[in-house]
Computed example of a mutant assay.
Amino acid sequence: MSIYQHFRAEEKEFIDQVLEWKEYVSSAYTHKLTDFLDPREQQIVQSLIGKEDDVRVTFYGGSDDSERKRALLYPDYFQPEVDDFAITVFEVKYPKKFVTLEHRQVLGTIMSLGLKREKFGDVILQGDRIQFIAAAEIESYVENNLDKVGKAGISLEKVSLDAVIQSDQQWQELVFTASSMRLDVLISSMTNLSRQKSQMLIEGKRVKVNHKLIENTSFECGEGDVFSVRGFGRFKIISIDGKTKKDKWRIQAGKQK
């Protein structure tokens, strides 16, 4: 039985990478730190590493409720510390009386620096305060190259992990059953739209899964996936709890308030 049959075809490259990390830690008997992973990637790493092996894994992204996290793979003797995750927290200082900055503006500016998205964790907003998480290895580059968001001049202040603000993001629990894990079926259930309307949203390029635009209505979804549906908000699959007697999937999901 192939390990790949439990995952999507497009995830094969990432699965191979995780297996390489695991082999490295096992053979070199040392730890391996990854870039920031989205929730689906975290779920894949967790499932491939398991819980009863000589290689273990812990995730951390700056706070307990971080969405994007770095994974630390390590041998069973190793005791991971927060410092091992090499995370830097930047607070954005800007003229708040005259300028309003949004999440998409901050993220867009970060992405314009020419660095991989995987080098950054969450962008966190609370009121008019803005922070973003970055890998420590790019700290100097970010400090030297980020001085504007849009047309607003900004400065960056490094803050401790203890000072990470709690996101305004809250999730409303959704519990439902679905006949399959197809994208159109799940969007229909989470938005209370008909299957036909959910298909129109997907084909109309209004749905992203894990920040990637998906136009295939039959795209197979899984635990840990995060959905952005333009006009309806953000959703995530928290857990898949087996099947009912009528052969439907039991799903726990969340809708961002």
Rank of each mutant, 00 (worst) to 15 (best):
residue 115 L to K: 15
residue 189 S to I: 02
residue 127 G to E: 00
residue 98 F to T: 10
residue 91 E to S: 10
residue 213 L to H: 10
residue 83 D to V: 10
residue 97 K to N: 06
residue 159 V to P: 07
residue 175 V to F: 10
residue 145 N to Q: 11
residue 162 D to V: 02
residue 135 A to N: 12
residue 179 S to C: 05
residue 92 V to C: 03
residue 130 I to W: 03
residue 93 K to L: 13
residue 113 L to W: 14
residue 129 R to L: 03
residue 101 L to F: 04
residue 192 N to F: 12
residue 122 D to I: 04
residue 171 W to C: 01
residue 148 K to D: 00
residue 156 L to P: 07
residue 142 V to N: 09
residue 75 P to H: 14
residue 197 K to Y: 08
residue 179 S to A: 14
residue 107 L to E: 11
residue 130 I to D: 07
residue 177 T to Y: 12
residue 148 K to G: 00
residue 183 L to P: 14
residue 164 V to S: 06
residue 214 I to E: 08
residue 211 H to A: 02
residue 174 L to V: 05
residue 209 V to M: 13
residue 193 L to R: 07
residue 97 K to M: 01
residue 111 M to R: 12
residue 215 E to T: 15
residue 220 E to T: 14
residue 93 K to F: 04
residue 80 P to W: 07
residue 188 S to V: 03
residue 114 G to F: 13
residue 114 G to C: 12
residue 111 M to W: 13
residue 114 G to D: 11
residue 137 E to L: 13
residue 128 D to R: 14
residue 177 T to L: 06
residue 191 T to R: 05
residue 121 G to N: 11
residue 168 D to S: 11
residue 138 I to C: 12
residue 160 S to R: 09
residue 79 Q to W: 11
residue 193 L to P: 04
residue 126 Q to K: 13
residue 148 K to Q: 08
residue 165 I to M: 02
residue 89 V to D: 00
residue 123 V to A: 04
residue 99 V to N: 06
residue 174 L to A: 05
residue 184 D to P: 12
residue 177 T to I: 12
residue 219 F to C: 01
residue 145 N to W: 06
residue 143 E to V: 12
residue 88 T to E: 00
residue 207 V to A: 10
residue 194 S to T: 13
residue 120 F to Y: 14
residue 76 D to S: 14
residue 180 S to P: 05
residue 132 F to I: 01
residue 195 R to F: 02
residue 187 I to C: 11
residue 178 A to H: 12
residue 89 V to P: 10
residue 130 I to Y: 03
residue 167 S to N: 04
residue 213 L to A: 06
residue 148 K to A: 00
residue 108 G to W: 06
residue 188 S to C: 03
residue 155 S to H: 08
residue 84 D to Q: 05
residue 177 T to R: 11
residue 216 N to F: 10
residue 164 V to G: 03
residue 177 T to A: 03
residue 164 V to L: 08
residue 219 F to V: 07
residue 203 E to N: 13
residue 147 D to V: 02
residue 134 A to I: 08
residue 102 E to G: 11
residue 181 M to Y: 00
residue 201 L to C: 11
residue 116 K to Y: 11
residue 146 L to Y: 09
residue 115 L to Q: 15
residue 204 G to L: 07
residue 191 T to P: 01
residue 211 H to C: 01
residue 107 L to M: 15
residue 159 V to Q: 02
residue 169 Q to M: 02
residue 186 L to V: 08
residue 208 K to C: 03
residue 130 I to P: 14
residue 79 Q to H: 14
residue 101 L to Q: 05
residue 198 S to E: 13
residue 179 S to Q: 15
residue 89 V to W: 03
residue 144 N to S: 12
residue 139 E to F: 03
residue 154 I to F: 04
residue 167 S to G: 12
residue 158 K to R: 15
residue 133 I to C: 02
residue 76 D to V: 13
residue 159 V to G: 00
residue 80 P to N: 09
residue 199 Q to G: 14
residue 217 T to M: 11
residue 91 E to N: 08
residue 121 G to M: 09
residue 76 D to C: 09
residue 89 V to S: 01
residue 139 E to M: 10
residue 193 L to I: 03
residue 214 I to D: 09
residue 131 Q to H: 07
residue 176 F to N: 05
residue 100 T to M: 07
residue 100 T to S: 15
residue 104 R to N: 10
residue 106 V to Q: 05
residue 120 F to G: 02
residue 186 L to A: 08
residue 150 G to L: 01
residue 150 G to W: 01
residue 99 V to S: 06
residue 135 A to I: 03
residue 104 R to M: 04
residue 125 L to T: 05
residue 150 G to Q: 09
residue 143 E to W: 00
residue 204 G to M: 09
residue 185 V to P: 00
